[in-house]
């Protein structure tokens, strides 16, 4: 874990308008995340977990406030710039894997590499490495429907790390898996954090999953009410 800040969120407000009603999710949220941290965010439904994850990933914007990533404000970047920023810095892992059903595992993993000017050989090498890391080298040519839930999530992890981003954002990554498979996935994430220095922010409902993180945050009504480490998060 480093002392350098990866994220610095300042005075974040987020409101949704539903009909005539304005719903406030965050009202002056402040949080920092250090590089190399594995952060879990827990909290009841509607507490703003996924909204926070979306804002960290640049797929949603705060109503006001500032999101600094390595000192650069990202909340006002245009769509194109944000897309480039995501491609360079963020790997996403979704609850339901979000794999492309018509592409086999290696083609799914290759997708983020298509955003970079790499040769086919370079792409193949990176895909092979990523699949090997998640233990799925022998399933490279299988379609998602030919894989178990745990294997699909491993492919999704391989897709998230193949372009070597700094940050992995995981939205309930084990929510659709049995305990044994969930543990394997969480161990893989832990490995990526400890061995490869990836900063991981994981939203989960599962306290066991949260225990794999080195910092656990509890979000309720738009505020963090509990944290287990003050080293990584302030």
């Amino acid at each position: 874990m480093s002392n350098e800040l990866l994220f610095d969120l300042k005075n974040i407000e987020k409101r949704f308008v539903r009909g005539r009603e304005s719903i406030s999710i965050f009202d002056g949220l402040n949080i920092t995340i250090k590089k190399g941290t594995f952060v879990s965010i827990m909290g009841p439904s509607g507490s703003g977990k996924t909204t926070l994850l979306n804002m960290l990933g640049g797929v949603d914007r705060p109503t006001s406030g500032e999101i600094l990533f390595e000192g650069q404000a990202i909340q006002n970047l245009g769509e194109g710039e944000l897309a480039k920023w995501r491609a360079r810095h963020v790997g996403f892992i979704f609850q339901f894997y979000n794999l492309m059903p018509m592409l086999n595992a290696e083609k799914n993993v290759e997708l983020p590499l298509l955003l970079k000017n790499l040769s086919k050989a370079q792409r193949n090498k990176s895909v092979e490495t990523a699949l090997k890391l998640v233990g799925l080298s022998d399933r490279a040519r299988h379609l998602p429907k030919e894989l178990s839930g745990g294997q699909q999530q491993r492919v999704a992890i391989a897709r998230a790390i193949v372009s070597d981003p700094d940050l992995l954002l995981c939205d309930e990554p084990t929510g659709d898996l049995d305990r044994t498979t969930a543990t394997e996935i969480l161990e893989t994430l832990q490995l990526l954090n400890k061995e490869f220095g990836k900063t991981i922010v994981m939203v989960t409902h599962d306290p066991v999953a949260a225990s794999f993180a080195n910092v656990s945050l509890h979000l309720d009504k738009g505020q963090f009410i509990e944290q287990q480490s003050s080293e990584a998060v302030a």
């Binding site: 990933g57 797929v59 769509e79 194109g80 897309a83 480039k84 995501r86 491609a87 360079r88 996403f92 979704f94 979000n98 492309m100 059903p101 997708l111 983020p112 298509l114 955003l115 897709r159």
Partner: peptide, 14 residues
């Protein structure tokens, strides 16, 4: 929709 949104989240352009 989910596939398209996922690709765009990954960084694919609209």
């Amino acid at each position: 929709a989910v596939e398209i949104a996922t690709l765009r989240a990954i960084g694919f352009k609209g």
